[in-house]
Amino acid sequence: MHATQKPRHDDDPLDVETFARPEQQRRYIAAMHRLAVQRRTGDPVRVYVSAAPTTTSNANWQRWLKRITEDLPDGIELLHYGSVFEGRPYAWDTLVDQLDGLVVIGRPKRLGSRVHVLGPVARLELRSLVAQKPVLLFTHNLGLVPVVDCKSQVMAPPEAPRLKLIAPKRWSRDSATLQAALDALRPADDNGGEGPEARRDTANHLAAPFVVRSAVS
């Protein structure tokens, strides 16, 4: 995630298609393929949207959620803090093992910027999933960008570090890494007649992770 390819122009280090090395891309695509083939028919697919309170209280929040939903495969349960933790303790460790992916929304450096800053909580949420499941950065101009393709930098303060993510300037939505991530998040076709809209981002599903865990224990 930290490595860079040789830029096209020496004076613009961001002018690359990806900051991942070729072998990192190959390993990532292979890992996403394994997740895709392991998906069983009828398995729910849950993706959590990590966003700061200032983001979720923004007038555009619902519009951004709608855009993320449209950019992801049909049939995904889209979760976020308000739908899962509102009115109950924040219990990430309880939820994380039941997530299939993560979308992070950072604070852009400026409108249309490829530089996004994640707060301390979002950074920890990202770290808990980035090596195991699809983790995507939501950008207003590029859409969803796999974090593996981004350049990362830990920022101060040391007691609560933030994370800067920089999307590559020449990144394309046709990239093999994004297609692999989306394939890993695509629900298996159950042909059960429900259709994707019946399972998409519905409030009835959002408490399920906690109900399941309680029943098992």
Rank of each mutant, 00 (worst) to 15 (best):
Y48S: 05
L144W: 07
G87I: 08
R88T: 06
I68L: 05
V148W: 00
R213V: 15
S214T: 14
E194A: 15
G143L: 10
K164T: 03
A215L: 15
A3L: 14
R39D: 01
D149A: 11
Q98G: 15
E17F: 07
E159P: 08
G119I: 11
R67Q: 11
R173T: 09
W64Y: 10
N58F: 10
D43A: 12
T54N: 14
A52R: 13
G87S: 05
V96A: 14
Q179V: 01
E125L: 06
H140F: 06
Q153V: 07
T54G: 15
F210N: 08
R107N: 08
K6A: 01
A188S: 10
F210C: 06
V84A: 03
A176F: 04
A31Q: 15
E125N: 06
L78M: 02
F210K: 10
Q153K: 14
F85Q: 11
K133D: 00
Y90M: 12
L185C: 01
A91F: 00
S57T: 14
E159S: 10
M155T: 06
Q24P: 05
V84T: 09
A20Y: 02
L206I: 06
P134E: 00
I29C: 12
A131E: 11
S152W: 10
T56Q: 08
P146D: 13
A3C: 15
R213E: 13
R114Y: 02
W61G: 10
L206K: 15
R123E: 03
A176T: 10
P161G: 00
G112H: 03
N204F: 08
S217G: 10
R39Q: 07
H33R: 15
P196M: 00
D12W: 13
D11M: 09
L35I: 00
D12V: 11
V115K: 11
A176N: 09
P196R: 00
H2P: 14
R114N: 09
G112N: 06
W61D: 03
I166K: 08
V45T: 14
L111F: 04
K164E: 02
R88H: 03
R46H: 02
G42A: 06
K164P: 02
A31I: 01
F85D: 03
G143W: 04
H116A: 01
D149V: 12
E17L: 08
N60M: 13
P158S: 04
P44K: 05
D100T: 01
A181L: 01
L185H: 03
Q25M: 13
Q5V: 13
S217A: 09
P134R: 07
V49C: 06
R199D: 01
E159D: 12
V37D: 02
H205G: 08
R8P: 00
N191W: 04
A176K: 15
D74S: 09
A203Q: 09
P53L: 07
P158D: 04
L163D: 01
D174L: 13
T41C: 04
R21E: 03
T18S: 02
L165T: 02
V147M: 03
T54M: 13
L102T: 08
A156F: 04
R8F: 02
P120R: 14
H205A: 08
G42I: 12
A188L: 05
D100G: 09
V212H: 03
A176M: 12
L136T: 09
T18N: 02
D71A: 14
D201Q: 07
V16W: 00
